[in-house]
Amino acid sequence: MNFNLTFIGQMIAFAVFVWFCIKFVWPPLMNAIEERQKTITEGLAAADRAGRDLELAQEKATKTLREARKEAAGIIESANKRGAQIIDEAKESARAEAERIKVAAHAEIDQDVERAREKLRSQVAVLALAGAEKVLESSVDANTHKAMIDKLAANL
């Protein structure tokens, strides 16, 4: 336990080790640690951000889905309405068409009746005259009795 040159030797050794540590040990280790800290912090932040993004996207998707459903419901409703309308219109036009056809048919029938009646009327006179001629054996003057026959025919 004497005080001697060991003291100096230890100082030199210490100086060398301190120099070595300052020069070659501390900077790379500290750089690595700091860089890793940065990477981890960034990673955590990114994960956080991604989580938030996902949440937002889900929210958006839900919203879109809800809107789409609402829209689809609206479309179906309007389609149904339109269909009912078309049916109503069709019914209405069919009824109108039927009415029209019926009226036309009635008119035609009336016309036919009229025509037949006219025809008959025109022939009644001839037939009556022919009949009367046969009865009276040409004693009847056609011109004399023509007015009377016509009056008769008009009453038919």
């Binding site: 005080f3 060991t6 003291f7 100096i8 230890q10 100082m11 100086a15």
Partner: peptide, 10 residues
């Protein structure tokens, strides 16, 4: 003590 004092004096 040489060692510890050596370090301390450095």
């Amino acid at each position: 003590p040489n060692v510890t004092l050596g370090m301390a004096f450095f």
